[in-house]
């Protein structure tokens, strides 16, 4: 075999330069497409409408929908998530003409403190949902596995209620997620609220 003696450090050819540039561009473009694909998959929604209550909304596809309960009119849970299932629910309560959102928030707090473990209201504030003024309640509690025969630690859950009085009823929109991932999950709730009509 003939001893090759290539000359190291020779300048790059045009082809090599363009090739490198194309490769970098391709990689970035592909990564962009991948991230877009991710956004599409995680942001897929299903439509829901309840004419009886008067709500129309989109919710994340693949979340478990339940509308047969006396506690709420609409509830979705992310069942594919390990740990506490991130939940969005809408419930309605009758109110009088004198009832304010703050009254509803106080009633909620009183009833929850009896049923939710270590329930604490973090803060109550005012805000708007679109053009509608709302009461916003942040709270936390410990969620426990319901089966007594299984062994699970409590999960610290952070929740956020948006309360408003519309058409003679209090509408309570609740978002609950594991406290550690509340901020990560919150954009889902924001998207949900953006699509919500009532």
């Amino acid at each position: 075999m003939i001893l090759n003696n290539p000359s190291p450090g020779r300048p790059l050819t045009q082809t090599q330069r363009w090739s490198t540039l194309f490769t970098i561009i391709l990689a970035l473009v592909m990564l962009g497409i991948g991230l877009n694909m991710r956004a599409q998959i995680t942001g897929a929604v299903a439509a829901y409408e309840d004419t009886r209550i008067g709500i129309r909304l989109n919710y994340p596809e693949g979340w478990l929908l339940d509308t047969n309960s006396s506690d709420y009119v609409f509830r979705i849970r992310d069942m594919t998530r390990a740990g506490f299932k991130t939940t969005i629910q809408i419930s309605v309560r009758p109110v009088s003409s004198a009832t304010t959102e703050r009254n509803v928030a106080d009633q909620l707090a009183r009833s929850r403190v009896l049923t939710l473990q270590d329930y604490r209201v973090l803060n109550i504030g005012m805000g708007t949902l679109g053009e509608i003024p709302v009461e916003i309640v942040r709270y936390t509690y410990n969620d426990q596995s319901t089966s007594p025969f299984l062994q699970s630690f409590s999960t610290v859950v952070e929740g956020l209620d948006i309360l408003t009085i519309q058409r003679g009823q209090a509408i309570i929109i609740s978002f609950r997620a594991e406290a550690d991932s509340f901020d990560d999950e919150y954009p889902i709730f924001e998207t949900f609220l953006n699509d919500l009509e009532f």
Binding site: W63, L65, D66, S147, F149, L150
Partner: peptide, 22 residues
């Protein structure tokens, strides 16, 4: 289609992965 009324039962695993259909 991920509606709860289609389910017969739902079980969640505990910290060791055990579940029981109630």
């Amino acid at each position: 289609v991920w509606e709860e009324n289609q389910l017969y039962a739902l079980a969640i695993t505990d910290r060791e992965g055990y579940f029981e259909v109630d």
